[in-house]
Design a protein around this nucleic acid. Structure first.
Lengths: 154, 154
DNA sequence: ATGAGTGCAAATGGTTTGCAGGCTC
DNA sequence: GAGCCTGCAAACCATTTGCACTCAT
């Protein structure tokens, strides 16, 4: 267990083991990769490449944006991360969870809330099969606004 | 009824009335807009801007790509068209249907199949409400491959 | 010491925009 | 005629890539 991530254990989420991943894939374990993975480990806000670069440069001011992009693509390819494109914005990343989940995106704040519906998953399977397809992946994004307001269209 | 679109009537789909739309919105009815709308009227393949430009230049070789983009954005804004971004590809467009629908995307051929599930729509409403949100819009894309194959991973 | 990985800068690709002239109203 | 639209070219922005150098193995 990597020090400082005991709270992850409490949530039954294993931290990304970048050491193991690199070893298994024949990749080199560089300082940059450590930093990027650690930042994503802690992030709960689905940051984009530029935001990750901002955070990374605070740890290592020499890290290049292109390295961020290369690392993100690499780790996505290895199944360690997931890439999401919400609306017309830049790609945003999060650690790949064992359990797939979908997203509610608050268009007013940009905040992202994760959810999972086995019911919806099941219906999708059924629909794909009815059309003669098998599912490779899917994405469901619900763009929302907070409900509690009383006034209309401000 | 616009000549040549009787088949639309048969499907209970009203053709886009660009004349009416322009009149209502105070927009000018130009030849370019007519061409673009007509092409989208006929298209069943969710074309992107470049593809529309290709088709449009066959009717009017002088039409500019930027005009295509401007018109598409304008008509999307007016609610006449819908814009979809599948995977990392360019935006693809279709006429906005009265009934919302979602998409199955065959990743091998790029073919898009439309479907609608009231059940899924209902579940989404429920989920959003449970989280204290109201839905503004949503998108569900299921990336698939044909099922009929017997071999695995070619 | 070897070559995978990096930083930097330049290239890319889809889309947008500034501007001068053209065409609808 | 006024000014909305268009064509053209340049600008934009997220992302990718070529290249020489660095550093993990």
């Amino acid at each position: 267990m990597v020090a400082g991530y005991d709270w992850l254990r409490a949530l039954h989420i294993d931290p990304i083991d970048i050491v193991k991943i690199c070893k298994e894939c024949g990749l080199r374990l560089t300082g940059q990769r450590r930093v990027i993975v650690e930042l994503l480990q802690q992030a709960s806000d689905h940051p984009d490449a530029l935001e990750l670069h901002r955070r990374a440069t605070k740890v290592d001011p020499r890290i290049a944006l292109s390295t961020i992009y290369r690392t993100l693509s690499l780790l996505e390819e290895k199944g360690v991360l997931e890439r999401h494109v919400f609306g017309s914005g830049p790609a945003r990343f999060e650690r790949a969870d064992a359990e797939h989940h979908d997203h509610l995106i608050d268009v007013e704040s940009g905040q992202v809330v994760e959810f999972r519906s086995d019911e919806i998953e099941r219906l999708q399977q059924q629909i794909a099969r009815e059309h003669g397809f098998e599912i490779i992946s899917h994405r469901l994004e619900i763009y929302v606004r907070p409900l509690q307001r009383r006034k209309r269209e401000s």
